[in-house]
Amino acid sequence: MTLPLPLATSMTSDVPLGWFLTLGLFMFVVGGVGVVVRRNPVVVFMCIELMLNAVNLTFLAFARYQIVPGASTEQAALNAMNGQMMVIFVMAVAAAEVAVGLGIIMAIFRLRNEADLDDMSALRG
C-alpha cells in the first residue's frame, strides 16, 4: 500500500557524521564572524539566525548518528528523539526572538533613525 518514500529512505548511511558537523561548524563560524563584523542591526540578527541553524543541524546530525557506545535500541531511539525535540524548541524560541527582536529594532529606528549598531550606545554612560 505504501510507495517507496522518496524522502524517508535511508539516505545517509554512507555520508559520514563528520561532514554534517563540518557544515554546521562552518555556518556557525561564518555567522559568528558576521555578528562581529556587520553593523546593520538586521544583518546582525540574520547572522544570529544562521548560528542557531548551524546548531540545529548539529543536533539533528547527532540525533541521527548515535555515537553513544553500547546504548540499547530503546536508548538510541530516545536519544534520537531528544535531538529532534531540541531543534523544535530552538525553532519556537527563534520565532519568539525574531518577533521581539525585530520589534525592538523598529522601535530603535523610530527613535533614532539610524542604522549603525556601533552608535547605539545611549546607555554606555
Binding site: T2, L3, L5, P6, A8
Partner: peptide, 12 residues
C-alpha cells in the same frame, strides 16, 4: 494510478 500519482506520497 498507484505508480503515477502523486509525485511524492510523503508522510508530511
Amino acid at each position: 494510478f498507484h505508480y503515477l500519482t502523486p509525485v511524492a506520497n510523503v508522510d508530511i
